[in-house]
Computed example of a mutant assay.
Amino acid sequence: MNKVSAGAAEAVADITDGASLAVGGFGLSGVPEVLLRALYAQGADGLRVVSNNCGVDGRGLGVLLAAGRIARVTGSYVGENKEFARQYLAGELEVELVPQGTLAERLRAGGAGIPAFYTPAGVGTQVERGGLPWRYTAEGAVELASPPKETREFAGRRHVLEHGITTDFALVRAWRGDRHGNLRFRQAAANFNPLAATSGRVTIAEVEELVEPGELRPDEIHLPGIYVQRVVTLTAEEAADKHMEKRTVRV
């Protein structure tokens, strides 16, 4: 039951080229930075990533992206990452853009063993009809586009069929965790982290504070340890190394 790894490098050592990864975080909040840096050092290539966004230039998934180690991204937001946009438009990266709520539910469904579900999100758009560019050529033409989705009517309203997502690995960050893998997330870090964690066949969690089993009350646990296979304890410096996409001040 002791799931604590010796360090981040050991925890990500068996992630192979071409592996699929669900990665928690939203913007730069709750991003498993230490595990991502360890994966960068480990050298895995051709990764297929599922995450709300791809970090920013030089932070989060942006580190792997800049190194050309990500082959495909399933996400909902390109956002502040200029290299992400450049690679996508240059035909170097395959990108499946998904409505944000749909992406969250696809991860949740995969983790719950639900193969597919119907949703009204995207009805009447290219999400339903197909044709969203997944990959461009170097010349800017669409090389690969999304297929049309199955639809069905419920209570007089049309819905599209979306498939649950499962991945080979999941990388998440938690505020507190115990040796059994029970996790508690804090504030905005409780975004895509619990959903990503459930969808991974092997889930690796970096935790800012490691506590002993029993110190987390049952009603404090956001993610039961059954979903977590490995726990990495952060140093005080690693736990405090938090960045934001944009700083806004009042003049």
Rank of each mutant, 00 (worst) to 15 (best):
Q42N: 14
D45M: 13
G46K: 15
G46T: 12
R48A: 10
V49D: 09
V50W: 02
N52E: 08
N53W: 01
C54K: 00
G55E: 04
V56C: 08
G58M: 09
G58H: 08
R59V: 03
G62V: 02
G62W: 06
V63Q: 07
L64T: 04
A67P: 07
A67D: 12
R69W: 05
R69G: 05
I70L: 09
Y77G: 00
K82F: 10
E83G: 08
Q87T: 00
Y88H: 12
A90L: 14
E92N: 13
L93K: 10
E94S: 14
E94P: 01
L97K: 05
G101C: 00
E105N: 09
L107Q: 06
L107H: 08
R108L: 12
G111M: 02
A112C: 06
G113C: 02
I114N: 00
P115F: 07
F117P: 02
P120F: 06
G122K: 06
V123L: 06
V123M: 09
V123W: 03
G124M: 11
G124V: 13
G124S: 06
E128M: 14
E128C: 07
R129Y: 13
R129C: 00
G131T: 08
G131C: 11
P133I: 04
R135F: 00
T137H: 13
A138T: 11
E139Q: 14
V142Q: 04
E143P: 00
E143L: 13
S146T: 15
S146Y: 08
P147G: 10
P148C: 04
P148I: 07
P148K: 11
P148Q: 06
P148W: 07
G156L: 09
R157T: 15
H159E: 11
H159R: 04
V160N: 03
L161T: 03
I165T: 03
A170K: 08
L171V: 05
L171W: 13
V172H: 07
R173H: 09
A174S: 12
R176S: 05
G177L: 12
D178Y: 05
R184L: 11
